[in-house]
Amino acid sequence: MDYDPEGGAINVRFLQADNQRANFIVQNFNLETANSLRRVMLAEIPTLAIDVVEVLDNTSVLADEFVCHRLGLIPLISKGVEDLLYSRECDCDGYCDNCAVVLTLNAKCTGSEIMKVYARDLVIESGQRSSDELGRPVITDSEGTGSCIVKLRRGQAIHMRCIAKKGIAKEHAKWAPSAAIGFEYDPANKLHHLDYWYEENADEEWPKDQERINLDGGPGNPDEPFNYDAVPTRFFYDVETVGGLDPDQIVTIGIETLQKKLARIMGELQGSGGGDGMDLGGAQSPTMNGAGYGGADGGYTTPGYGGASQWGGAGDAAQGGTTPYGATPYGQSW
């Protein structure tokens, strides 16, 4: 890469990888792209969350709105949301199977003891969905209950239909796929991007992450003159999932979302006259087999994650926008 003084290809090194988190280092990368990826992973990855609640019965002590808000924040399994349409882009009136998952919460306390209603009591109502995973509440605790929604006393009941829709965290944080994203570079502050506050001596008063400093090429040499041209090239990410998506999916979809954003800009600029000599093919790697960076309509296909999903493209359904449900109106008309 021409911008990398040390040379070497972009590569990833893992520190930790499990169902909860992906802790990795990206090397030979640049700050602006690394930060954009972080921002996209935080705010622009589509997931599923309860968005509208029909209150059929609520005699609990909590007000309808209060319970609805709690329901909205419950993490739902989002594997396969790419097959779901955004509700606002769907032809249907309100919601339908192509753009929503309906969950029901129905509980009544008949015993004399206080009854707790948990996230696990949310039952998917709509049938005929191939992956019954999609929309199930995320349950990771050892009791297998999920979070507690309300407590009911004898005779109290709650009955709600929850319509879960696809969305991104820019609209509301309940759609955020990640619980937290750790992001750091230059732990030894060799680039002086940080100016530490101190009483007497910043070096002694501030804790040091020796492990990371070693991973980042050791502490700086105080005798060396400061290099004003140095730029960060190594980035520490720690992506922790809420549970709806696997941590690697968050990163992969994040990268794809950012690519799509850029592809859209390219398409848009190219569409506005001039610059015809530019061929977009250059950006495609062999793994992208013919994924079309769209024209002005933003038609763009992503590979990966079970079945090519496609949106935006007008009429080019031949590119493989078929979903497991057959008759979804992808790429046909709206």
């Binding site: 890469m1 290809a9 972009i10 590569n11 990833v12 090194r13 893992f14 990888a17 992906a22 990795f24 990206v26 990368f29 792209t33 990826l37 690697d248 990163v251 992969t252 990268i255 794809e256 950012l258 690519q259 850029l262 592809a263 800009i265 390219m266 530019m278 977009l280 250059g282 950006a283 495609q284 790697s285 793994t287 992208m288 960076y293």
Partner: peptide, 21 residues
């Protein structure tokens, strides 16, 4: 051109990430 280069970089990052993961 800049967009295309970034998309290329991200593609490299993605493939490296997936293998390492």
């Amino acid at each position: 051109k800049c967009c295309r280069d970034i998309v290329g970089d991200l593609e490299m990052l993605k493939s490296s990430f997936q293998t390492e993961w």
